[in-house]
Amino acid sequence: MILLDKNTKVVVQGATGKMGGAHTKRMIEYGTKIVAGVTPGKGGTQVHGLPVYDSVKEAVEKTGATCSVIFVPPYGSLDAGFEAVDAGIELIVLITEGIPPQDTAKLVAHVKANNVKMVGPNCPGVITPGESLVGILPGSIFKPGKTGMVSRSGTLTYEIALALTEAGIGQSTCVGIGGDPVKGTGYQEPLQMFSDDPNTEVIVMIGEIGGTAEEEAAEFIKKNVKKPVIGFIAGVTAPPGKRMGHAGAIISGGKGTAESKMKSFEANGIKVAMTPKEVAKLVGESLKTPVKA
């Protein structure tokens, strides 16, 4: 497992909001060690039996939390993220969707300068099945096991996790890195962590069209990852040119199609699955004790 285990102490920024509150309840029910909520102005109250503090700093001092999951609205996320970094949080999981990318870029720069890890934004979060769930993933779909997953997508990750679980294949940790162009964690860091993790045997990498992160990760895998990796790319049928700016095209340099990513996977020794069930089949064959899916 990586990033999270049953001892990870988590604060929830935005725990008293509608979405934050609902998911705080679900995370507690899953068994995540949620220790506090943070909502400025609501310090001293409670949410789902947890203390609420006015600041992340106070929550960290009182509870020893090392992880913060952020559910605040898009235009408040830059502020909330800076607050978490400056309070000494080590892992931020930023769920919020719709943050303007320049805000994210500013936050990412601050996160990196302080050696903090950030997953997201616009992500489903992280789950180490049976131990801890931080985010909005549906816990019941996952089960403990030896397959690590890293993905840019939310519901597609659930779909593939479901196919694995139904085939009897459990997961060590699943990391939803998020669908925004600018993000805290790309593929490479989780890939390296899975590669080093003794409880992970096989890695599933889920990508989609746009950018060149998958191509770069494929080259990284060939050099650094000594475990089998199964790849899945969504968007073979997506039309080209949608929402691609003139200056954006220049950076991608013709890369970014599903074909390019799949070719890059194959060229670097990553098996490519075409359906979620095929992912389960290929993973099953790659495990040390093969599972027939």
Binding site: S151, R152, S153, G154, T155, L156, T157, Y158, E159, G179, I206, E208, I209, F232, A234, G235, V236, T237, A238, A258, M274, T275, P276
Partner: peptide, 21 residues
Amino acid sequence: CNGAGLTMATMDMVKKFGGNP
């Protein structure tokens, strides 16, 4: 569908199984 990745994957499967999204 709900979610961009799942929507694209569903389109791809429609194509794979002989349909046109």
